Amino acid sequence: GHGAWGCVARSDHGEVIFACAGKLEFLASPLQAEATACIKAIEAASELGIHRVIFESDSLQLVNALKTGEYDKSSIGVLLREVRSICCASFDAF
């Protein structure tokens, strides 16, 4: 039920722009933790005024869930839809 998240943002030249991390509680699944971590990374990049991003994840399940909408009707579907919505609202390209 507990976990942590972390992200590192790099420039197109590989230089670290920022890094952040935090704790997660009341988790129902690993996929929920991955989706929540993704939202935290999106929010951090948006707050810094970054407009073009490429997100990477070591969770193939999260990547597939975001690309296909396969999990949109699952218990974490709202988180997945939020990821897509925030990206559309916050970035010129993602």
Rank of each mutant, 00 (worst) to 15 (best):
H2M: 01
A4N: 12
W5G: 06
G6R: 01
C7G: 06
C7H: 07
V8G: 01
V8M: 01
A9I: 04
A9C: 04
R10D: 02
D12P: 01
D12K: 11
D12I: 00
H13N: 10
E15F: 02
E15M: 01
V16T: 10
F18C: 13
F18P: 08
F18D: 11
F18A: 07
F18Q: 11
C20N: 12
K23Q: 14
F26T: 09
F26A: 08
L27T: 04
A28G: 03
S29C: 02
Q32C: 00
Q32Y: 00
A35T: 07
A35L: 06
A35Q: 05
T36A: 02
A37S: 15
C38V: 07
A41E: 02
A44V: 06
A45W: 04
A45C: 13
S46L: 00
E47V: 06
L48E: 02
I50G: 13
I50V: 15
I50M: 08
H51W: 06
Q61D: 12
V63L: 09
V63Q: 08
A65S: 12
A65H: 02
A65G: 08
E70L: 05
E70S: 15
Y71H: 13
Y71P: 04
K73F: 00
K73R: 13
S75C: 09
G77Y: 13
V78F: 07
L79W: 06
L80I: 13
R81M: 09
C87P: 09
C88T: 13
S90K: 15
S90V: 03
D92S: 07
D92N: 09
A93R: 14
A93I: 00
